[in-house]
Write a protein that binds this DNA or RNA. Structure first.
Length: 571
RNA sequence: GCCCUUGUAGUUCAAUGGAUAGAACGAAGCUCUUCUAAGGCUUUGAUGUAGGUUCGAUUCCUACCAAGGGCACCA
């Protein structure tokens, strides 16, 4: 419809011999002003020195002369010279029918068709806990991956793990100090928790205990050299345990990675790249190997790639990683990396260095950054009083939801699954509801609320629609488009816009447009079924209202899934 | 000091250069009692400051103020 109106305007302007490159067509915020609106008259009035309102009238007359479509029932001039289009009942009825025909494919588009895109996100480190920051990166990365898939891209998910370095040495020191933490009879999850404890003990020792610091540095060297048999054994066990524990979290979150890259491996690749480009891109300075990025862009700065000790830094590993991504995934069109904003500046330097080495990759790397997750009222500790980790937050949310639904008439095993899915939704939605980039002030109570602006509220609206559809099914009222009410419901004026919202989210890599849209249609649908009885044998429009409910349910489910959230049928 | 990100109702967030700046929570009031009252309907209230560009600026530009992050051997 959008392109139809666009062409209509274009033809009208052509007939009036007015030239314009760019026709802006929007949805007015207020339905009083129609379903589509254009400002062309305002934009060109000055150039051809004519009164905007008079010009708009002229354009409207031309549009009305051209228009034979049944889908537009009114075009008029309003305000300073806006041209507003009012769509007809037939258009909305047809759009609902189209949504039902598309079903789960609603909102799919071809803008990224055939493109190979890799999205790297989450990136937790073995031997360390899964933090809320990982939760945040995961929520954003997963949603972007799904949105791009919905736009036709061939997306592969990648995860990058810091499998070696000081943090590992700290954990191993902690495990050596307290061997009870190495108990291998426990469940994988508990073993992973013990390793997390060992890590925080080791981290503390590194700060406060001089001997501890010395020993940890020693362990670190042995780890790089792989020279100590006992340490190697602990390393392999700990690596497997923590990686398996992460895998459980990914399942809960709904992420399945295709590629796993390890820092230790990337370090070697990166070093090779640096060596090959010494003198060309990299240079020596104070015994270290650096890249003076400010020579190429005054907004960038110098960074160290190989330390004076001869060790590769994170920058070098990133270099190796990016090159490796393009090697393992040939003909890749775009490599997206999702991290916190604190890595923005250094990533710019790394990408600049790589662009000098591989100019063809310059426009195929994209870094998406997000803010930090903060808690309302400052610091928050988990229910058990510990520091909040990603895992404890998930557990708390899940527990709180379980408490809310404990009296409902649903089998226990189902309830547990619902509590998990709704708990994940509470957290993910809080992250995805706002534009990425700024910090998030996380409010636990609001996030798990079933009303207002929350993930559970979206899921709940979907569940309510489902229960209406179940009732319709039981009373044998099937969706139909023959009889329609004369009035067009607000929800109809919103549902047909879903594909546009997906398109926008995909082109900007911004999931929050989908989140706000879903809240809008949820509110509108609640208002719809709060004011009318959908399933009603005495209402000749009931089959159409059932169709409308189906359309809402399809879009709601698809939209929620694009956020990376699951959609329980009941709750 | 330089660079990046961000300043919008009491609070947490929206708004491809457009019309009366939109939600949610909170607060006040009303309401069906029918498909989950975890509902529906009202009311309340905001663009950090000062300039500039524009027919029109929350949006673009400049300066300032405030918050967060980064700036040589950590990741």
């Amino acid at each position: 419809m959008e392109s139809k109106i666009r062409n209509l305007i274009k033809d009208a302007l052509l007939n009036l011999k007015i030239e314009i490159n760019d026709i802006v067509l929007t949805h007015p915020e207020d339905f009083e002003n129609g379903d589509y609106s254009t400002n062309v008259a305002l934009a060109i009035a000055k150039n051809i020195s004519e009164n905007p309102k008079a010009l708009a009238e002229k354009i409207v007359r031309e549009i009305l002369r051209l228009n034979v479509a049944k889908n537009i029932h009114k075009v008029e001039v309003a305000g300073a010279g806006f041209i507003n289009f009012y769509l007809s009942r037939k258009f909305f009825t047809d759009s609902i029918e189209e949504i039902l025909n598309k079903g789960e494919n609603v909102g799919k588009n071809d803008t990224n068709k055939g493109e190979k895109i890799m999205v790297e996100y989450t990136d937790p480190n073995p031997f360390k806990p899964f933090h809320i920051g990982h939760l945040m990166t995961n929520a954003i990365g997963e949603s972007i991956a799904r949105i791009l898939e919905h736009s036709g891209a061939d997306v592969s998910r990648a995860n990058y793990q810091g499998d070696i370095g000081l943090h590992v040495a700290k954990a191993i020191y902690g495990l050596l100090q307290d061997e009870s933490l190495q108990n291998k009879m426990l469940s994988n999850n508990l073993q992973a928790m013990n390793i997390g404890k060992a890590y925080s003990n080791g981290a503390e020792a590194y700060e406060t205990n001089e001997n501890g610091k010395k020993e940890i540095d020693e362990i670190n060297k042995k780890l790089y050299a792989r020279s100590d048999k006992k340490i190697n054994e602990i390393y392999h066990w700990g690596f497997d345990v923590t990686m398996d524990a992460f895998e459980d979290i990914y399942t809960m979150l709904g992420t399945k990675f295709k590629f796993y890259f390890l820092e230790s491996v990337m370090a070697d690749f990166g070093r090779e790249i640096v060596n090959k480009n010494m003198g060309k891109v990299f240079e020596e300075s104070d015994g270290a190997v650096v890249f003076k990025a400010e020579k190429h862009d005054p907004k960038l700065h110098t960074r160290v790639f190989i330390t004076s000790q001869g060790l590769p830094t994170y920058e070098t590993k990133e270099l190796g990683l990016t090159q490796e991504k393009f090697k393992t995934n040939p003909n890749m069109d775009l490599s997206i990396t999702v991290t916190a904003t604190e890595q923005m500046d250094y990533m710019r330097v790394v990408m600049k260095a790589l662009s000098l080495i591989h100019p063809e990759l310059e426009n195929r790397m994209k870094h998406i950054t997000h803010g930090m997750m903060r808690f309302v009222g400052g610091k928050m500790s988990s229910r058990k009083g510990n520091v909040v980790t990603g895992e404890s937050l998930l557990a708390d949310a899940r527990g709180a939801i379980m408490e809310k639904i404990k009296d409902r008439d649903i089998p226990l095993s189902e309830k547990e699954q619902i509590a998990t899915d709704v708990g994940v939704s509470a957290i993910k939605y809080s992250i995805l509801r706002q534009s990425i980039g700024a910090d998030i002030i996380y409010d636990f109570e609001k996030s798990i609320s079933f009303e207002g602006d929350s993930g559970p509220y979206l899921q709940y609206s979907f569940a309510r629609a489902n229960s209406i559809l179940e009732k319709a099914h039981a009373e044998n009222i099937l969706p139909d488009f023959e009889k329609t009410p004369e009035e067009v419901f607000e929800i109809e004026k919103l549902l047909y816009r879903f594909p546009e919202v997906v398109l926008r989210s995909a082109s900007l890599y911004e999931p929050h447009h989908i989140a706000s849209y879903l809240i809008e249609i949820a509110r509108s649908f609640n208002s719809f079924y709060g004011n009318t009885l959908v399933v009603n044998k005495d209402d000749e429009n009931s089959p159409y209202k059932v169709a409308l409910t189906y359309a809402f349910a399809f879009i709601m489910r698809t939209g929620i899934q694009l956020l990376g959230i699951k959609t329980p049928e009941k709750m």
